[in-house]
Each structure stands twice: as structure tokens, then as C-alpha cells.
Design a protein around this nucleic acid. Structure first.
Length: 257
DNA sequence: TCATTTGTTTCATG
DNA sequence: ACATGAAACAAATG
């Protein structure tokens, strides 16, 4: 479930492994996740990646040609870096560099998407993605939320509203902010929205620092306690499992109001 | 065999 | 037309 912190971890890994190296070969496996033609992907040979970027849950590798390799991971996915000829198995895309090292886009459940795009900004616009959650100012966040109805968790997860937050981090943010996921947006005060914004940034940054790994998160985090009946890590309450937005939702009824 | 997982899409409703 | 929300869908796993 790669959400913003996970994708940011991928981006950083790519930034320190695949940039400024000549692409020697591009191997493509026939897979439903590959949305670019074989020919266009092959045309990456001889080029190099110049920049690793991210918007929400998308990761972009900018090519020296100006195009971007756009990656979305779906439910499962990873980018792996292999040293010295080691061979990844079952990857839809494997890129080998002239230093013999290679990089693979892994997507076991095949719900991800791999594209080649010309213009990153146009792509974001076309996909109707909202602003990146980490790049959002307090003012714009509050305004965005005030223009919406429905449940607060649903709004946080809506990629068209803001990009990057999925089921896990929506729960985490509201847990840390002390607000129930099923709360209606109309019933939140401005100061509540401001608090959610502040907590959202803190949670995302903390998760990035810990590479999105549940067992590295602070004990006061919900991540790692996502099980009905688990003691709350912030108060004497008990974690409860419910459904919001037809998704499994965990919260503590005692300190989340 | 089927429930479960998640992000996205589709469709019905208000 | 638009927003919202419920359900469907994708693939794999236990």
C-alpha cells in the first residue's frame, strides 16, 4: 500500500541509485501494468535519468530526453536496485545501466501503472490530482476542506482533493489529531482543520524519516496497532475497527472526538 | 472457495 | 452539471 511516505522513500532510493547513468538496456515484460509501448520504452536506451520526483502517490523519473517515466504502485509495489548483474524475477520493467547495476519496477499484484509521459504538470492536471499533501499550505488546506462535505477521512483520501494520503495515513492523521474518521466536515471548526493540517505534515514527515516502516514508528502511532481491541498508544482507550468509505478504519473512541 | 486487502473507476442518487 | 457515496473491479493470498 504505497502512500506518500512510501513513495517518497522510493523516490529517495532512486535519487541515490539510478541518476546520471547511461541506460544500457530496457527489458519489458508483457504485463497489464505497462501502459507505454515497447518501442517508446526501448527508446530510453542510451539516455539517462536526470531527476527523481514525486507528486502524491506517483513517482517520476525525468529522462535526459525530457520525457518522464511515471510510476504508480497500486496496492503493492516497489523499486529495487540490483548490484552487479543480479537478476530480479518477474518484474514488468528492468533497466540495466552501463555500470552493470540494474533497477526494477516490481508490481506483484499488477495493480500499478507504468507510463511514459511528456509533461509532468499536464499529466497531473489530466489525472485531476489535487496538490501534493506535503506541499500544502495551511490556508489552502482549510479552504479546500471547507468546500467539501461528507466524512473527514473520505476527504483526506480523495486524490482529487489532495494527493498522497491513503487508508493507513488517513487513519493515522486523524488518530494523532484526536478527530473521529467518520466526523462530517461540516461539523469541524476552522481550528480543527488547522490542527489536521499541522498533524498531517508532522505525520507524513515522521513516516518518511522512518521509511514508512510500521515497526520503526513511535509507540504513540496507530500504525502497528491496526487490530480490533488493541490498547490505544495515546490514552487508556481501546482501538476499534469500523468501516468508513467502505474501508477498514481503526480509531480510538476515547481520545478521538 | 471465498473473504480480504487498496486505489481507482463506475454508476446511482441527491 | 456536480458532488457524494456505495459498489465493482483489478490480482493475489491464506
Amino acid at each position: 500500500m504505497p502512500e506518500l511516505p512510501d513513495v517518497e522513500t522510493f523516490r529517495k532510493r532512486l535519487a541515490r541509485t539510478v541518476l546520471h547513468k547511461r541506460i544500457k538496456s530496457v527489458k519489458i515484460k508483457n504485463s497489464r501494468v505497462v501502459k507505454a509501448s515497447r518501442k517508446k520504452l526501448k527508446a530510453m536506451e542510451g539516455r539517462s535519468f536526470e531527476k527523481a520526483e514525486r507528486h502524491g502517490k506517483h513517482c517520476f523519473l525525468k529522462l535526459s530526453s525530457g520525457n518522464h517515466l511515471a510510476m504508480h504502485f497500486g496496492m503493492t509495489g516497489d523499486v529495487r536496485y540490483y548490484k552487479d548483474g543480479a537478476k530480479p524475477d518477474n518484474a514488468p520493467l528492468v533497466i540495466r545501466f552501463s555500470d552493470r547495476h540494474s533497477f526494477a519496477f516490481i508490481n506483484v499484484r499488477k495493480l500499478g501503472k507504468l507510463r511514459l509521459i511528456k509533461d509532468k504538470e499536464k499529466f497531473i492536471e489530466k489525472q485531476k490530482l489535487g496538490p501534493d499533501a506535503l506541499a500544502m499550505t495551511k490556508k489552502s488546506f482549510v479552504k479546500l476542506m471547507q468546500n467539501k462535505k461528507g466524512r473527514v477521512k473520505t476527504a483526506l483520501m480523495d486524490q482529487k482533493t489532495l494527493a498522497g494520503i491513503g487508508n493507513i495515513y488517513a487513519d493515522e492523521i486523524l488518530y494523532q489529531a484526536g478527530i473521529r474518521p467518520q466526523k462530517r466536515l461540516g461539523r469541524l471548526e476552522k481550528k480543527d482543520l488547522e490542527r489536521i493540517h499541522k498533524v498531517m505534515k508532522r505525520v507524513l514527515k515522521t513516516a518518511i524519516r522512518n521509511k514508512g516502516e510500521a515497526d520503526r514508528m513511535p509507540a504513540s502511532y496507530l500504525l502497528g496497532r491496526r487490530k480490533d481491541g488493541t490498547p490505544c498508544g495515546r490514552c487508556s482507550g481501546t482501538i476499534k475497527k469500523t468501516q468508513v468509505n467502505s474501508r477498514s478504519t481503526y480509531h480510538c473512541p476515547k481520545h478521538q472526538r
